[in-house]
C-alpha cells in the first residue's frame, strides 16, 4: 500500500512539474525559443506574490491574481525588447542572452531578498487532506494537479478555438507567410511569452505554498521543466503533463528507496526515455 501512496504522491508532484514546463513548452512550440531564465522567472513570480502577501495580508491566491497581469506585461516587454532581437536560425544568441538573464535575475533576487528561504503562508490548506480509498491525499497537491490540467485545457482551447490561437499556429508554421496575412509575428511572440509568464505565476504560487524557496533554486526548476518537455515530446502539451508525471513518480519512488536518490532518479528517467525514444513520447510530426 505504501507503494500506491508513493506513486499517487509522485503523480500529484508531476502536476507541479507540468506547471513549470507548460510555459516552456508553449514558447518553444511557437518560436523554437528555449528560455534558460524560465526557472528564475518562476522564483521571481514567487517573490512577487510574497511581496503582495506580506504588504497587504491578502491570500496568496488573490496576490497571484494581482501578480498575473504584471508578469504578463513583463513577458510581453521582455520578448518585444530583448528576445525578438535574437530569434533566428543561429541558436547561440537566444541561449546566451537568456542565460545572462538567468544570472542577472538570480543575483538581483539575492541582493533584494537575501539567500534566506521563504514560504508563502497557506493557513490550514497545507495540512488539509482528503481520503481517497485507503490513502490520504493532500488538498494542496490535488489543487496543484487540477490547476495543471486546467492550464493545459485552457491553452489547448486558446490554441484551437480562438483567433489568437490561429495566429499562434500560423506563425509557428511559417512566420513569413503569416506576416503576409496581416499577422505581426513580433506581437504574436510577445503575446506567447506574456501568456507563458501567466502560467509561470500559477507555477510560482504552488511552488511557494508547497515548499521553501530561495533565489538559487531557479536552475533546478528549469531542469525539471525541461525534462518534462523532452519526455513528453517537444510541442505537445498533454505530453508535457505526462512528462511531468513521469519525473514526479521517478522522484518520489527514488526518494522512497533512498532520500539521496530523489533528484537523481528524475534525471535517470530522462536518460532512459532519451535512450529508447529520443524524440519523446508524443513527438510532433515535423520539427
Amino acid at each position: 500500500m505504501i507503494w500506491v501512496d508513493t506513486i499517487v504522491q509522485g503523480i500529484l508532484l508531476g502536476g507541479l512539474y507540468a506547471l513549470f514546463a507548460a510555459g516552456l513548452s508553449l514558447v518553444f512550440g511557437i518560436m523554437r525559443l528555449v528560455n534558460l531564465a524560465h526557472g528564475d522567472l518562476i522564483v521571481m513570480g514567487a517573490y512577487l506574490i510574497l511581496v503582495f502577501v506580506s504588504f497587504t495580508g491578502l491570500s496568496p491566491f488573490i496576490a497571484a491574481a494581482i501578480a498575473m497581469p504584471l508578469m504578463f506585461a513583463l513577458g510581453y516587454g521582455l520578448q518585444k525588447v530583448m528576445l525578438n532581437r535574437v530569434l533566428g536560425d543561429d541558436i547561440l544568441p537566444p541561449l546566451l542572452v537568456t542565460f545572462g538573464l538567468s544570472v542577472v535575475l538570480q543575483n538581483a533576487m539575492l541582493e533584494g531578498f537575501s539567500a534566506d528561504s521563504q514560504r508563502l503562508p497557506t493557513g490550514a490548506l497545507s495540512t488539509a487532506s482528503v481520503e481517497l480509498g485507503s490513502i490520504n491525499v493532500g488538498v494542496l497537491p490535488l489543487l496543484t494537479f487540477g490547476s495543471a490540467v486546467l492550464v493545459i485545457v485552457v491553452l489547448n482551447q486558446i490554441f484551437y478555438r480562438t483567433e489568437l490561437g490561429r495566429a499562434f499556429r500560423a506563425t509557428s508554421d511559417d512566420a513569413t507567410t503569416a506576416s503576409l496575412m496581416g499577422i505581426k509575428p513580433a506581437n504574436i511572440f510577445a503575446m506567447a511569452t506574456g501568456i507563458a509568464l501567466i502560467i509561470v505565476t500559477i507555477a510560482a504560487l504552488y511552488l511557494g505554498m508547497r515548499a521553501n524557496f530561495d533565489p538559487n533554486i531557479g536552475p533546478a526548476r528549469l531542469i525539471y521543466a525541461f525534462e518534462a518537455v523532452i519526455i513528453g515530446g517537444l510541442g505537445s502539451l498533454w505530453g508535457t503533463l505526462l512528462g511531468g508525471i513521469i519525473i514526479g513518480v521517478a522522484q518520489t519512488v527514488g526518494a522512497a528507496i533512498n532520500p539521496e536518490w530523489q533528484i537523481l532518479a528524475g534525471h535517470v528517467a530522462l536518460l532512459i526515455v532519451l535512450l529508447i525514444r529520443p524524440r519523446g513520447l508524443f513527438p510532433r510530426a515535423v520539427d
Binding site: R32, L33, V34, L36, I91, P94, L95, P219, L222, I223, F226, E227, I230, L234, H267, L270, L271, L274
Partner: peptide, 10 residues
C-alpha cells in the same frame, strides 16, 4: 540546439 545545452547540464 538549446535542448542539447540543457541536456549536457542534466
Amino acid at each position: 540546439g538549446a535542448y542539447f545545452a540543457i541536456g549536457t547540464w542534466v
